[in-house]
């Protein structure tokens, strides 16, 4: 089972945790100022330094475009990795929890992911990768400002710690607006994972730290965990309120969505994200009992446009064929259990 199919701690609200460390090599200009030959040299140096880690090295250039998109849909690479592919590569662990993007905005973007609320564990494994790489790579490190990065918003720890949260109840009652406006004051930011602001597709939000200078990695994570737990509590209380006051309506909503997901013949990705959100809520509220959350976790990645296109093969270009394939996939995954 892939890590993103598993249900982690606080899994009814927290889908996944991610740690990202930005690092640069001292003797090379940052990616934006680098020549192609320098970029290739960085690729070789990182590839050699990563040997002891046993990661798979994938050149972006050698990869079919649809595979690049699939890596992006699984959050293994960022959208930036899809441009200037001849200078970029990614190193991935077998379980896909660890990845290292090479020549993104910074020379190195070390990523570590965990299901549910697992920031501490994710930081521990990212630190391990960082330590191994640093044994043979000369990092840019300023005695006062810490790790040097291309964008000054990352200078210091180079750390971006984030959690993906499923917040359907807080979205429905509008509390999400207050949250979006207030977390900034605490040095954090919250945004929709798909789509912008409050129109977050599938009620999925990413909450992450903004400040990387003047605060340690451990303290950043401690504060983020506190914030995530607080938001999680609010979401759960709202869900309980809904269950107490509008049980029939919420039951009708999630069961209808499950029905559509099990029976639809054409399914756009937007609709799929909405339905999956409803079914996820139904399972976590105890309304839907015969669907396994791990199937929903897997489905939420597999309905992405690139994943569907890869299943379609030559028909991947046609939006309607993709929507038909998406509906087929959902029917198959869910009817086995139903």
């Amino acid at each position: 089972m892939k890590w993103y199919e598993q249900q982690g701690k606080q899994g009814d609200v927290v889908i996944s945790s991610r740690i990202r460390l930005a690092r640069n090599l001292k003797d090379f200009p940052f990616a934006s100022k680098m020549s192609q030959s320098q970029a290739k040299e960085v690729l070789q140096k990182v590839k050699a330094a990563a040997k002891p880690l046993g990661l798979t090295y994938l050149s972006m250039e050698a990869m079919p475009p649809v595979n690049r998109q699939m890596l992006m849909e699984r959050h293994i690479i960022s959208p930036e990795m899809l441009g200037a592919v001849d200078t970029k590569a990614v190193l991935i662990s077998e379980d896909e929890k660890i990845s290292v993007m090479v020549n993104e905005e910074d020379h190195l973007r070390i990523q570590s992911m965990m299901p549910g609320l697992g920031l501490q564990e994710a930081l521990k494994s990212a630190n391990h990768v960082d330590d191994v790489l640093e044994k043979s790579l000369d990092y840019g490190f300023h005695p006062q400002y810490g790790y040097t990065t291309c964008c000054p918003t990352n200078t210091g720890t180079g750390l971006r710690a984030s959690c993906m949260l499923h917040l359907p109840a807080l979205t429905a009652n509008g509390f999400i607006h207050t949250l979006l406006a207030s977390v900034g004051k605490l040095g954090f930011t919250i945004r929709g994972v798909y789509g912008e602001g409050t129109k977050a597709l599938g009620n999925l939000y990413q909450i992450s730290n903004q400040i990387t200078l003047g605060i340690s990695e451990e303290e950043t994570i401690k504060r983020l965990v506190e914030l995530v737990l607080m938001v999680g509590d609010k979401e759960r209380k709202m869900r309980q309120n809904i269950l107490a006051e509008q049980k029939s309506r919420i039951t009708d909503m999630v069961m209808r969505s499950l029905g559509t997901l099990k029976n639809a013949y054409i399914l756009s990705s937007d609709e799929a994200f909405k339905l999956i959100s409803d079914v996820r809520l139904g399972i976590n509220m105890g309304i839907i009992k015969d669907v396994d959350i791990t199937d929903i976790n897997r489905l939420s990645y597999e309905v992405g446009a690139a994943h569907i296109a890869s299943l379609c093969g030559e028909d991947g270009e046609s939006a309607e064929k993709r929507d038909i394939m998406r509906a087929k996939l959902a029917r198959e995954k869910l009817s086995l259990k139903g």
Binding site: K135, Y139, L213, G214, I215, S216
Partner: peptide, 12 residues
């Protein structure tokens, strides 16, 4: 802030 408070790499 202008002072790094986090990890310090072993060599660099």
């Amino acid at each position: 802030s202008v002072k790094h408070m986090g990890k310090i790499p072993k060599r660099s």
